[in-house]
């Protein structure tokens, strides 16, 4: 049952991500991205990482994507942009990047195949995660908080309106 769910959600994630790649309308692309992220979150749940699954939904699919939506709305990119995107996405430009990515993907596959078959899906309790976070990883957590603070300040600074004359 879980296995079926895993493959199903994996399929959804891949399909949604693919749509992100080829979607010309930014808002539509964002919506596909949300679907992809939700599918990933479900896979986290299936893998037994409940806490991570919840965070994925709340923060990724919630907060981060909402940020994107806000920005798209602020910029008010109309249908003209969609036309432009269509022009940009002419078939010719696919070849090079796709080939490179295929190579990289093939290499990843080769690496994966070497490792042999293993089972995943062991449940990790949120309690152990909390202990790990505030035990051995305390410094990393503090650093991450500082990084967030820096991101906050940076975003505030960059988001200010331009001064007149510049």
């Amino acid at each position: 049952m879980e296995l079926t769910l895993f493959y199903l959600s994996a399929l959804v994630a891949i399909a949604a991500t693919f749509m992100v790649v080829i979607q010309c309308n930014t808002v539509h692309a964002l919506l596909y991205l949300i679907v992809s992220l939700l599918a990933s979150g479900f896979i986290f749940y299936l893998l037994g990482a409940f806490f991570a699954a919840v965070l994925e939904v709340i923060i990724y699919a919630g907060a981060i994507i909402v940020l994107f939506v806000f920005v798209v709305m602020m910029l008010n990119l109309g249908s003209k942009t969609i036309e432009q995107e269509k022009q940009w996405l002419c078939p010719g430009i696919w070849h090079g990047p796709a080939a490179l990515c295929a190579i990289l993907f093939a290499e990843l596959l080769v690496t994966l195949m070497r490792s042999g078959a293993h089972e995943a899906g062991r449940i990790v309790e949120s309690k152990t995660l909390g202990i790990a976070l505030f035990g051995p990883y305390l410094l990393a957590v503090e650093t991450a908080s500082m990084l967030l603070l820096a991101g906050l300040v940076g975003a505030y600074h960059l988001g200010r309106p331009l001064r007149s004359g510049s």
Partner: peptide, 28 residues
């Protein structure tokens, strides 16, 4: 929870990563 093949999870991650990479390269 039922066991899920580890490699398949990693495979999924690779596919998503490669798709993201392609998007990064082809979108302007």
């Amino acid at each position: 929870m039922a066991s899920i093949p580890f490699e398949h999870a990693l495979l999924l991650a690779s596919v998503l990563f490669a798709l993201g990479l392609v998007a990064l390269l082809i979108r302007r």
